[in-house]
């Protein structure tokens, strides 16, 4: 196992395994197999047989993870209405709840951005919450 390249924080490691890759209609060649610790730990199909393939795999995997993260995120504005002993409560709107398929007991990540102070302006101020399930 030998690291041959680093790309976007991931190592590309040569395993010592080889596989035959078809390179033309009647041509093939034996190439080394690479893995990416933390992303593609063990040799499995599709095999990464060049450093460029490994880099492309990292790009696609990161793009896929970002798309997954966005698909699991809802953004909404809300007012803080409930005051606990030392905390405040914000209601997750039904639309966001439905979009994410949230149930009681689910764990979520909430980022809070203060948009306006209470009483400022005629309408009730809102708070923005980004919610990721």
């Amino acid at each position: 196992m030998q690291t041959v390249d680093e790309y976007k924080g991931y190592e590309i490691v040569e395993t010592g395994w080889t596989t035959e890759v078809r390179t033309g209609f009647d041509a093939s060649e034996v190439r080394p197999v690479y893995v990416i610790p933390g992303m593609k730990e063990r040799p499995s199909s599709p095999f990464l047989t060049t450093v460029q393939e490994a880099r492309d795999f990292i790009d696609e995997e990161l793009a896929g993870r970002e798309a997954m993260r966005e698909a699991r995120t809802a953004t909404f504005e809300a007012s803080v209405k409930v005051r606990g002993a030392a905390s405040l409560g914000v209601t997750i709107p039904a639309s966001a709840s439905r979009a994410l398929g949230l149930e009681v007991g689910d764990r979520v990540r909430v980022t809070v951005e203060k948009m306006a102070r209470r009483g400022a302006g005629r309408k009730a101020p809102a708070r923005s919450c980004a919610l990721a399930a």
Binding site: T15, W17, T18, T19, E20, V33, P43, F47
Partner: peptide, 8 residues
């Protein structure tokens, strides 16, 4: 022994 990956 060389470790190889084939298709079957």
């Amino acid at each position: 022994m060389e470790s190889r990956i084939f298709r079957y």
